[in-house]
Design a protein around this nucleic acid. Structure first.
Lengths: 197, 197
DNA sequence: CGTTGAGTTCATCGAGCGTTGAATTTCAGG
DNA sequence: CCTGAAATTCAACGCTCGATGAACTCAACG
């Protein structure tokens, strides 16, 4: 078993180069706007090589947006400490993620979620089954009103990402994290624990 | 002058049919996904006829998203009555617009704003120069902090539109307007008149 | 050295796109 | 009826795209 001879994976850098080129291209121009050919050019390789490594374009997109997100690593930081200051912790965590290289993947997912139904479904299912459900459980919210609270939180989070990272509307696009947290955290906090009637 | 003989514009219905087909197509599949050919098929005409009426595809898109929005008609309803209940009036006005046929144009603009830079610029400039600046002026807000307040309002409005009308995340997507107003209006109100530090 | 298989390139296919210009139909005015 | 302009269609051009499959390069191993 595992009798493997022949050339060894000499240049695994190429795969990474394609991935980062794809991430930037998807973030800059969306799923349709980013052509396999342009991604290959950005990585300095032949277009066919992209298919060789990642199969179809859809699979490449999945690898780009599915890799840098691991909810089980991020969520505890938000949930730990009870629900009294969850708003501030959520906004702060979100900003730290979106200001990192993983933010480009987020922009890519967001751009494409509004262009294709299957990416929208991808994002919706990721949000609901991976994020919101776990948060609800660990904060033991009232199951009757938890879904509404969760979608309200999603609305403010999505809107903040859109204005700050995609549309880049000033001054929110360049405001320091502390200012954003001070402004937005109370909104999230009210959506989670406040009175909604 | 104006000596015009020959056939009169006999079927102005066709033009409208193309416009509504284009609005639905742009809203459903975005700017790129909606092909001129599919729009023509949806209107029951030849693709060349679309160009005959609207020129290039970009101009057709402008006609679709530029027509049903007239800020001078909507803004007074939001601004009138001072800044004390502006949150509720803004959310209620927004819902009434997005639940009408004009909402499809909004979805189209939103979908495309995340796919192309020039539509993003279109939306940004429309928001800032047509909406936010007028609201700021008529509410005589402090010019020093008004831009930040305006972009915060934009973030919650954009996020609500995205969750409710584009991604259609439940239960916010189907919640009756009164519930949405009760939940979101205080957020807008605080962004306009509240303490942000 | 010769085989092997992964890395990489090349040429190409078929499809869909926006757009164009000429042809054809339709119909109000003279 | 006849003319001419608008409404509408037809056929085609040039382009880009995703994908495919055959060819070539080359390091590792027996």
């Amino acid at each position: 078993m595992a009798r493997r001879t022949g050339r060894r994976p000499g240049n695994p850098d190429t795969r990474e180069a394609i991935l980062t080129a794809a991430r930037n291209a998807f973030a800059d121009r969306g799923y349709d706007g980013a052509s396999i050919r342009s991604i290959a050019t950005g990585a300095g390789v032949d277009p066919a090589l992209v298919h060789h490594y990642f199969g179809t374009k859809e699979q490449l997109f999945m690898d780009v947006v599915g890799a840098p997100i691991d909810p089980r690593e991020v969520l505890p930081r938000v949930v730990a400490g009870g629900k009294e200051e969850v708003g501030e912790r959520l906004v702060r965590t979100m900003l730290s993620i979106w200001d990192s290289p993983a933010g480009a993947a987020g922009v890519a997912l967001m751009r494409s979620a509004l262009s294709h139904d299957w990416t929208a479904r991808l994002m919706r299912e990721f949000l609901t089954t991976q994020i919101l459900r776990r948060v609800m459980k660990q904060l033991d919210m009232n199951p009757r009103e938890a879904p509404l609270r969760a979608s309200l939180v999603a609305s403010q989070v999505a809107g903040l990402a859109m204005v700050r990272y995609v549309l880049k509307i000033e001054p929110l696009a360049s405001a320091p994290p502390d200012v954003v947290v001070a402004a937005v955290a109370p909104t999230i906090q009210r959506y989670v624990t406040g009175d909604l009637s």
